[in-house]
Every structure is written in structure tokens, then in C-alpha cells.
């Protein structure tokens, strides 16, 4: 497969007509749980351009994780159109999806997800294995990438011999060794102390600035979110605010789902959130309320399983 079209235009933003790295049009995702339909995403439209630096915020159960899985090609929408690297995912079979992920997307997870008993350099080289790169080339490229994240001296260390910050750097190197168009980071600093987290964040920003890889980051940390160039706020499966399009966000109140008895929102929505005692009230939802809404978000850690 050839390099995605978006990569070609990455270094030439002056043409104006840039090809999007990811384009989602009215994307929805409904799960079937014990015969009941649960809508995790209900019509999300957004575009990620090469080089973007996007923070994706929202309370637990707002659909952030579901959206991340879709943007990363791990899952398919049940409605709408999703184009990753110029390819409509609804036209792709599972093996083609795998290849698309391998070539276009880099993932960084909150819990690192490094293979245990496997050296840093081999962890980083893992995506290249599925690309059919020779062992020697894999090691060279993985070592070079580890050098870029400041771990050139720890190539053969294993995850259990490294600190959390170092492990996350290895994970970042693994995500970038394939030179993807988009780097999807799900709470990348969530398992790290503040100093280490800040250093990891700086590294991500530096790589975003240097290589032009789009950085899309799910976070609960308002300080982290504030550093992004663009902030997308989600609630109840829809985007309620997008700083790139301040006038076109959905202006739907959270109670809109009461009019849809067939659809259940199972995860804590507006009501249960205040019941948790961590938030003072409801975000106002309008275009001007984006920053304010995230400012009042509870700083609880979203479980990976809380997609709906």
C-alpha cells in the first residue's frame, strides 16, 4: 500500500486545500448489549488535519474512547462516514483495517501496554514486524526512534526495568516508528506523576511540532487540554464544543435523549455525574461554554471500558 495522500500534503499547508488525515461525517456507533441498543456516539463530525494538536475532553461515558477507537481504525461506525488516510473504513475488511492502522495510526495508551519480557527496542519494532521489515532494519529504525525519545541508552532494557515515564516513552517510540499520520494518545499522562507526565507531554508536543504527525489526545487534565491547539469537548455521544469551529458545534441540551426511548445512554450522563459529588453543576453546552464546561469536569480517571 502506498503512503496515505494526507502525508504528501503534510509539509505544504500553504496550498489551503489540505487532505484531511481523518474525516468523520455524522459518525455514530451503537452497541448491542443483551438485545438493547446503546448509542455511544450519536452523529459526530470532525476533521483531523496533518499536524493538528487536538485535545479530546469530556466526562466519563461521553464517548471519547469510542471516538478514539473509531479514529484509530480499531472499530467501525454503525452510521455515517469515516475516512482514515483517504480510505473509507466501511469499505475495508479486517486485514485491510489492520494494514491501515499499521501505516496511518500510532497508539499511545494510558497503561503503556508494552509486551513484558521484551526489550525496549523489540517493543518499538513490533509494528514493523507486521510490515514485513527485516530484523536488522527493524532494530535500526527502532533504535533510532528510541534515541529520539531520549532512550538511546536503554535499548535492551525490559519494561520492568524501566520507570513509568520511560515505559511511556518506549510506547511513544513504538507509535511513531512507522511514521504514522496520526498519533492517538489515550490519557498518555494518566498513569504518571506530574513531573514525569509533563516531560512526556513535552515530548509528544515536540514530536508533533517536528514531524508534523497529528496529535489527538484524550485527557481529563484541564492543564493538559489547555495546551492543545484545538479542543473538542464531548458529552453524551456528541461533540458539544470544538474550538476549531466555535460557531458550528451542536447546540443540543443533554436531555435530548429523553425524546428517544429506543436509545439508552447507559453510562453516567448529566444526572449521575452530579450524583458522584465531584462536579458542581451542568455545563451549559453552548459554543461559548466549551472552555467553561471542561473547566468543571470531574478529574476522575475514565475507565477504558467506559465507552458507552
Amino acid at each position: 500500500m502506498t503512503e496515505p495522500v494526507a502525508a504528501g500534503s503534510r509539509g505544504d499547508p500553504s496550498t489551503g486545500e489540505r487532505v484531511a488525515a481523518i474525516e468523520a461525517v455524522d459518525v455514530s456507533r451503537t452497541y448491542q448489549l443483551d438485545g438493547v441498543s446503546v448509542a455511544a456516539l450519536r452523529g459526530v463530525s470532525l476533521t483531523v488535519q496533518p499536524g493538528d494538536y487536538v485535545a479530546l475532553v469530556g466526562p466519563s461515558g461521553s464517548g471519547k474512547s469510542t471516538l478514539m477507537h473509531l479514529l484509530g481504525g480499531l472499530d467501525r461506525p454503525t452510521g455515517g462516514r469515516l475516512v482514515i488516510g483517504g480510505r473509507d473504513v466501511n469499505t475495508l475488511a479486517p486485514p485491510e483495517m489492520a494494514t491501515l492502522r499499521n501505516e496511518t495510526i500510532g497508539f499511545v495508551f494510558q497503561a503503556f501496554y508494552l509486551l513484558p519480557r521484551t526489550s525496549a527496542v523489540e517493543n518499538v519494532a513490533l509494528p514493523l514486524v507486521y510490515r514485513g521489515v527485516s530484523a536488522r532494519q527493524r532494530r535500526e529504525r527502532a533504535a533510532a526512534m528510541l534515541g529520539r525519545v531520549g532512550l538511546g541508552h536503554r535499548l535492551d532494557h525490559r519494561p520492568n526495568q524501566m520507570s513509568g515515564g520511560e515505559q511511556q516513552r518506549v510506547a511513544i517510540a513504538r507509535a511513531l516508528v512507522t511514521e504514522p499520520t496520526v498519533l492517538l494518545a489515550d490519557e498518555p499522562t494518566g498513569n504518571l506523576d506530574s513531573v514525569t507526565g509533563a516531560a512526556v507531554l513535552e515530548l509528544l508536543e515536540q514530536l508533533n511540532a517536528e514531524s508534523g504527525v497529528a496529535l489527538v489526545m484524550v485527557t481529563h487534565d484541564q492543564e493538559v487540554a489547555a495546551r492543545a491547539h484545538r479542543r473538542i469537548t464531548m458529552r453524551d455521544g456528541v461533540v458539544v464544543a470544538d474550538s476549531a469551529h466555535p460557531h458550528s458545534v451542536h447546540d443540543r441540551p443533554p436531555s435530548v435523549d429523553h425524546g428517544r426511548p429506543a436509545t439508552l445512554i447507559s453510562a453516567p450522563s448529566a444526572e449521575p455525574r452530579s450524583a458522584s459529588g465531584s462536579g458542581p453543576g451542568h455545563p451549559s453546552g453552548g459554543s461559548g461554554g466549551a472552555a467553561g464546561a471542561t473547566g468543571r469536569l470531574p478529574r476522575e480517571v475514565e475507565r477504558p471500558g467506559g465507552a458507552a
Binding site: L74, P95, R101, Y113, Y130
Partner: peptide, 16 residues
């Protein structure tokens, strides 16, 4: 299972 998930995320096909 999680290792399988990770391998798939970084591009392992079902056959791999």
C-alpha cells in the same frame, strides 16, 4: 487478550 489487542492495534492482521 490484551497482548492480542495491542498487536492488532499496531497492525497485526487476524491471520498473523
Amino acid at each position: 487478550t490484551r497482548e492480542i489487542g495491542l498487536r492488532k492495534a499496531v497492525g497485526a492482521r487476524p491471520r498473523d
